[in-house]
Design a protein around this nucleic acid. Sequence first.
DNA 1: TAATTATTTAAGCAAATACTTAAATATATT
DNA 2: AATATATTTAAGTATTTGCTTAAATAATTA
Lengths: 123, 123
Amino acid sequence: MALELSCTRAEADQKQLMRCRETLGTNSEAIVEISKVLALAGNETRLKILFLLNEEGELCPCDFADILEMSVPAISQHIRKMKDVGLISSRREGQTLYYSLVRNHNEVLDNVFIKIQKNKKVA
Amino acid sequence: MALELSCTRAEADQKQLMRCRETLGTNSEAIVEISKVLALAGNETRLKILFLLNEEGELCPCDFADILEMSVPAISQHIRKMKDVGLISSRREGQTLYYSLVRNHNEVLDNVFIKIQKNKKVA
DNA sequence: TAATTATTTAAGCAAATACTTAAATATATT
DNA sequence: AATATATTTAAGTATTTGCTTAAATAATTA
């Protein structure tokens, strides 16, 4: 790892570089948290699960396996990742676990859903 | 791949399952596209690059390498991925390539930036 | 034209990811 | 208690990802 200590361009704006470092400093926690959410939603299968939960309220792993034509364990493992960071939660009814979105403060996801709906094919 | 043809729960709502399949059908293109953008933004380094471009207007790979304390090739490869899907574009000035956000229709990213700023540490 | 600077590209590799199949857990039914 | 159903967990594997180092491009300067 031979890292430059500083950008070597003659035109490099040292004030700008310092400002950028400070910007990242004050925003780093938010960036780390949000990048985790985006990474989860950045998988096609998981985005479909989240989108369907937004539309339908709640669904079980068996439903997703059916709808997405994937194995139940594959679905279950995607679900676990999203549950681990608190994006979704479950409610048990007998043998069935119903999952739903945790609606705390997810403006980011809400805007993703809106964007998807805006871009939908018109029949 | 031994896939269930249909959810086996007795309580399974077949109408709901059909509706979900249709929902995914009409929205699948949007979901595929948006999941690509989210996957890109879902990497901490790339989200920092995007966030800094949003704040500063334009920066070069050398700047990012300096600010993020990463090698220039590592930065360059992140940049290429985002350029490939049209998230960012470049302008040459001599030897230096200045990158900036492509401001088409990225409500999703805009809302991510707003969310990050909202959650920043107060000094 | 040669040397320097900014950047990209390529090849290689370790770690992470997304599936698979098989086994474990939990609830319900007989 | 035994069996069936819904789900999770674990182990294994192929693919993808994100870096590294070295080499290739491109523009600038001596």
